[in-house]
């Protein structure tokens, strides 16, 4: 059995050998960089329109061309990176947090708590996701943004005018609250399978407390599949965001989001393919990167994966 302290160092060693994972890591790091420094990187104002340069294909002044209002696509993609990154991380973090805690405890302790958690998980899972998000969006978004507007007029503090904040709290909050069940079920299943393995039985025989067994032996061993799920989850969250924007319940325009750009691009792509290809390709590359990184992490973190 590995010592947890060595685990991460060894994992990093193994990860460095995996070229695909490193490439994924590089893309993800670049995404974080762009998301953080977007306003300084963008060549144009993402809102300014030029009706004489509508839907032009990529060229020197506009590397990714312009959209149907003559706005620079590259600048909008760069600003969209912020949206995408925040969405992915926030949704996944909340979902995984809830899922791991509930799943691990339920799987390890069993009994009434397990039954309740599983009932709750089943209930949450049985809600058609898109339906719930659309309904939540339609019913709660407006009261919240009205409330924020009231706050702004009272304080004149521009933070209340940040429409992303309202989108965030609501759409992505609700997205997170419905995407935790898969993580919970996954973790619970892993824990169930691990807790009857010899080393856990042995640890129990040695008189170690449940909490220590759970934290030291069971959870780290359940990590592999979870990491795969999380890395896929990050990509999924981005795709989900674009799906919601496609249905008109995602980020509010004119805030640039890749999803909004894709759904706009889908309407004109036979005439201006770059308007679909640019955001879809960026979204695809980033999603793929998260997945490669996740797979690499999985191979690296799997304590018995050494050959």
């Amino acid at each position: 059995m590995e010592q947890p302290t060595n685990l991460w160092r060894d994992a990093w060693k193994r990860l460095r050998r995996n070229k695909l994972a490193l490439a994924g890591l590089a893309v993800v790091a670049f995404l974080v960089f762009v998301a953080a420094f977007g306003p300084w990187l963008a060549p144009h104002d993402y809102l300014s329109q030029n009706l004489d340069l509508r839907s032009v294909p990529p060229q020197a002044a506009h590397w990714f061309g312009t959209d149907d209002l003559g706005r620079d696509v590259l600048s909008r993609l760069i600003y969209g990176a912020r949206t995408a990154f925040l969405v992915a991380v926030a949704v996944t973090l909340i979902a995984v947090g809830i899922g791991v805690i509930l799943g691990a405890i339920a799987g390890f302790y069993g009994g009434t708590f397990d039954r309740f958690v599983m009932w709750f998980t089943d209930m949450t899972m049985s809600v058609p996701q898109l339906l719930l998000v659309v309904v939540i969006n339609a019913s709660l978004k407006q009261p919240i943004s009205t409330w924020m507007e009231t706050q702004y007029l009272a304080s004149l503090n521009p933070i209340w005018r940040n429409t992303m904040l309202a989108d965030f709290v609501l759409v992505f909050g609700s997205m997170a609250l419905i995407s935790w069940p898969p993580y919970a079920r996954l973790v619970r299943a892993q824990v169930l399978s691990i807790r009857s393995r010899p080393y856990v039985t042995a640890a129990r025989a040695l008189g170690l407390t449940n909490r220590i067994i759970l934290a030291r032996y069971v959870l780290p061993n359940a990590m592999g599949p979870l990491v795969v799920a999380v890395s896929a989850g990050l990509g999924t969250a981005m795709v989900l965001e674009s799906a919601f924007s496609f249905l008109g319940v995602g980020v509010t325009p004119p805030t640039p989001s890749w999803g909004n750009m894709i759904s706009d691009g889908l309407r004109v792509w036979t005439n201006s393919p770059h308007l679909l290809v640019a955001p879809a390709a960026v979204l695809a590359v980033v999603t793929v990167a998260f997945n490669f990184l996740g797979d690499g992490l999985n191979d690296a973190l799997n304590p018995k994966g050494q050959k």
Binding site: V239, S242, A280, A284, V285, V288, D295
Partner: peptide
């Protein structure tokens, strides 16, 4: 790599983009 790469690429293309 080929299998995984294809799978990951498929994963990254939303149905409403792939469809049309």
């Amino acid at each position: 790599y080929v299998i995984l790469g294809t799978a990951v690429a498929l994963w990254a293309i939303p149905a409403y983009v792939a469809g049309p």
